[in-house]
Design a binder for these strands. Structure first.
Lengths: 348, 348
DNA sequence: CTGAAAGCGCTTACAG
DNA sequence: CTGAAAGCGCTTACAG
């Protein structure tokens, strides 16, 4: 085995002063060049840039943000790093953030208010330019409004903090499940269940509402045990569906809180000897990339992560420019019908 | 729609001086208390902490790291944010990092050398305490060794940079696919293919090697078209398998680069009217949580993300303490047999 | 268009 | 155990 000797710190750090000396200009000029000022002659610009390269200069963004008041970092706080949906949104955010010259960092809050608090505190102490957050359940509206009041832009995505003044970007949750449920009703289903989501999630309330609206409109009743809550995970969907099948075997269609929950529903159906789509229709929410690749391909409500990303960056820009922003932006949804939703067997 | 008026920055920032005044102590004492020094009287400690709370003081970690030389931030650079495997490793890292008092941030490099470069540069300028990285393909060994030479701990996980002095933590890749392949041979398979992975990934080379070793040992030949490369995604596995099935329909078993690739293999088999497990055996690598939940449950090679996380943090600690470290740590693998690997039909 | 000077909010020896 | 002082590496008016 080879080994590091652990002897460290040989190089003295190269600073702007060294660069200035090497380039034969003042420190301020170096700063101006590095920040892309127009008011420096091309020749000096080149000398500065060359000096940076040959000296191996590393710009100290930490010092810059201490003096300047704002860093180039934008933090994205995720509650569910394992959620492919959130990954899609992050991927969507990156090109916009890049273009604005920000450097995106991601933090894993994991639905914990304490971690959320701790992270935001640390972020404030590092003068980040802004925060994009999926608020953890139970986030206090005054907490988030206080942060906004300090001048730090903070934007909620996917979930809002009720009664907060900070802006939020969300999907049309209610409409989404309404459309999903109505599509099942139109196929002829009458015993339709709703699986997944925890009651503390604000988005669950809205998705649940859309489901109930469609059922009411069709004059269909929803017994209590047709609603099965669970964590928004595959295993959550699995367990909730196993419960559902034992309590209400007459169910012929299931509306799921998310696509990931739907994947768990598939597993539970398989275990019960039922074929998703053929025996029990299943519809998801999100339209993850996997959903058209699994078997049978999953019908779902598409929310474009990219739309959420774009609007969030739009809000960020306006907040940074101290311009007015709408308090809430709802991005559209689209019903995607694939093989997992079919007419009930009794009608075929 | 409610709106933010965008008027900003009302509060003047509270600093240590304000806290010191309010608590009736000097600025240094506040600093000592906030950094957990033992040498301050309990009474002053309490006064300082109370003052922080009542004033709403936010510790400026940026300023601290400028003066002190190191921040409490550890960056985790991921190449594939959508990979559930990487998410599992991050989850594994967090408790260790928490315990050491570090605050973990994640950055999405997305297999791009330029982004990797840019991010590491920025991280250096923010004096992060350390970097845990899955090096992008093509990472230069001198580049990474230079960073180590500045005293910034950087630890590779999952992939190593060949000929680098910086330490790496990896799975026993070669052994893993060797065991996977041998298990298929023992079931009676003779026409075994290898699907997934790009040739630029160092870990692919090793996994491929393990496959070849087992085949050679059993005296089985591997035609060129039994090896199908693809991105490590579900759709990659899907497409590679579709190619494979048309070129070599006699194949009865597939060793996959990762579990995610295996999921794509399932889809391609379904589309070809074949049942994974029954018609064609499939074995993955990683053992993601999903793998026991999909249908049929996936046989695989388990690498505990937690093991990789633990060893990475161990290396980080040693590097920070300027102690010697091993150059490479290999964590164990375990063969997990589920329903997706069965004897070939011809033998039943 | 460029340079000298002050200061962002901390930590760290150093006296006492 | 505590306080006064210097300085981390930048940016930003301000003169020139």
């Amino acid at each position: 085995m080879k080994a590091n000797d652990g002897k460290g710190f040989p190089q003295k750090r190269v600073t702007m002063i060294d660069v200035a000396k090497a380039a034969g200009v003042s420190k301020s000029t170096v700063s101006l060049v590095l920040n892309g000022s127009e008011s420096v002659s091309d020749e000096k610009k080149k000398r500065v840039n060359d000096a940076c390269r040959t000296l191996g200069y590393v710009y100290n963004g930490g010092a810059a943000s201490l003096r300047g008041g704002r860093s180039k970092i934008v933090a994205i706080l995720s509650n569910n790093l394992t959620s492919p949906y959130f990954s899609q949104i992050i991927k969507g955010l990156e090109p916009y953030l890049d273009e604005l010259g920000f450097i995106p960092i991601i933090m894993d809050v994991n639905e914990s208010i304490e971690r959320q608090n701790q992270f935001v505190h640390a972020l404030r102490g590092h003068n980040v330019a802004g925060i994009i957050i999926t608020p953890a359940p139970g986030t206090d509206n005054r907490w988030i409004d206080n942060i906004v009041a300090t001048g730090l832009p903070i934007i909620s995505i996917m979930r809002e903090v009720e009664n907060s003044l900070s802006p939020a970007v969300m999907a049309e949750n209610r409409l989404g499940t309404y459309l999903a449920t109505r599509s099942l009703i139109e196929l002829g289903h009458k015993h339709i269940a709703f699986v997944g989501g925890l009651e503390t999630f604000i988005d669950l309330k809205l998705r649940h509402q859309g489901f109930m609206d469609a059922m009411d409109e069709a004059g269909l009743t929803v017994p209590d045990n047709y609603i099965q809550h669970s964590p928004s995970s595959r295993s959550g969907g699995h367990e909730a569906t196993t419960r559902l099948l034992s309590l209400a075997p007459e169910v012929t269609a299931i509306v799921c809180f998310t696509d990931v929950v739907a994947y768990g529903v598939y597993t539970a159906l398989h275990e019960a000897g039922k074929q998703p789509g053929e025996d029990v229709s299943v519809i998801g929410f999100d339209d993850l990339e996997d959903s058209r690749l699994i078997y049978p391909a999953l019908s779902t409500v598409r929310v474009k992560g990219e739309d959420i990303a774009r609007e969030a960056c739009y809000l960020l820009q306006r907040l940074l420019a101290q311009q007015q922003t709408p308090n809430k932006i709802l991005v559209g949804v689209e019903l995607i019908q694939r093989l997992s939703t079919q007419a009930p067997k009794s009608l075929v």
